[in-house]
Write a protein that binds this DNA or RNA. Structure first.
Lengths: 172, 172
DNA sequence: AATGGACTATCTACTGTTAGATAATTGCAT
DNA sequence: ATGCAATTATCTAACAGTAGATAGTCCATT
């Protein structure tokens, strides 16, 4: 794995712990074994790094979700799949959703990063609307926003109270 | 109003925009017209300021909620009241819930602040459980966590997409 | 006289960023 | 195959700005 990928990996952990200001070029450079100035070779500015981080996170998330039609074709409920991906993100890593945290602090972020965070939620809502429509929901738009809101909110509160059982209870 | 209250007020705005790292003693001192060193007179450390901010926010929030029994006594639904308080926080100030944002970045916060954020959500869940119980809900614990999760999540996503209509749709 | 609330001045540590240099590698034209 | 040029990935050194925090001083009110 390249240094660039290493940098994104260690930055992701820090952002998911404490947001955009929770990592510095020096810190992540130390952790991957290069100098902070060299980080600028891969990412001209911190905003560029943040934007690329959110973009790749979104792509990986969507890839993990898969295709609504395929899920339906094999007789599964896409909303269950969606919930399981969220559950895995919290229980496996014990970390917030990257774009959830960034979304909450949206107002203070560089525009480049804001755009990528918007992309995450826009794509999530589109996927969820298709899923609820495929499930025959009467109001797919309403169902989509409540699904993602409940999951992001339950994640936030489980982190705040440092107890995953709240997430489990909310998604039982 | 005292300088101390002024400091808390301007700090609150900044934290609700971008989290705990989104304000500095220098900034808030400038905004209230004193020097950054003088802020340490009122709050020995930044953690003390953050903790007091979250504590007062929680107290004000609970005061705004009022008493479940009184709400029921005048024939209103306490869950509707709760939802309206959240809606007001977002639509009036165009800002996240202070403890929601702090909760999401919990892992990176000083312990003093973490304790106050936990207090906020513990008190919210207690209030909501009483409210759902008073409403005759079959599973008040489940109803309480889903209520606050949905509202915090919808707030987060409305901020991320910079569009309050998502909050309105989720709470319609 | 004592206290509250501010001040000046300073400290150390860290922030993102830039400049300029270096070595290793790669691609192309001769 | 050799030689030139460009590219990649890193380095050292330094920059100006900001961070939270501390020590000591001043002055008005009590």
């Amino acid at each position: 794995m390249s240094k660039k990928d290493d940098l994104l990996k260690v930055a992701e952990v820090k952002v998911r712990q404490g947001g955009y200001n929770n990592f510095s070029f020096r810190e992540i450079a130390n952790e991957v074994g290069i100098k902070s100035a060299s980080v600028h070779y891969h990412f001209p500015t911190k905003a560029d790094l943040g934007a690329e981080l959110a973009h790749q996170y979104t792509d990986a998330f969507l890839a993990a979700l898969g295709d609504v039609d395929e899920i339906k074709a094999r007789g599964e409920n896409p909303i269950d799949i969606y919930t399981q991906i969220f559950r895995g993100a919290l229980l496996t890593d014990d970390k917030m959703c990257l774009c959830g945290l960034l979304g909450a602090q949206n107002e203070s972020l560089p525009e480049k990063v804001q755009i990528e965070v918007k992309r995450f939620f826009a794509k999530n809502l589109t996927w969820l609307q298709a899923a609820h429509k495929a499930n025959g929901e009467a109001d797919p738009e309403y169902a989509a926003i409540t699904t993602v809101s409940l999951l992001e909110g339950a994640m936030m509160i489980s982190k705040a109270l440092n107890d995953h059982s709240y997430f489990k209870l909310a998604t039982q």
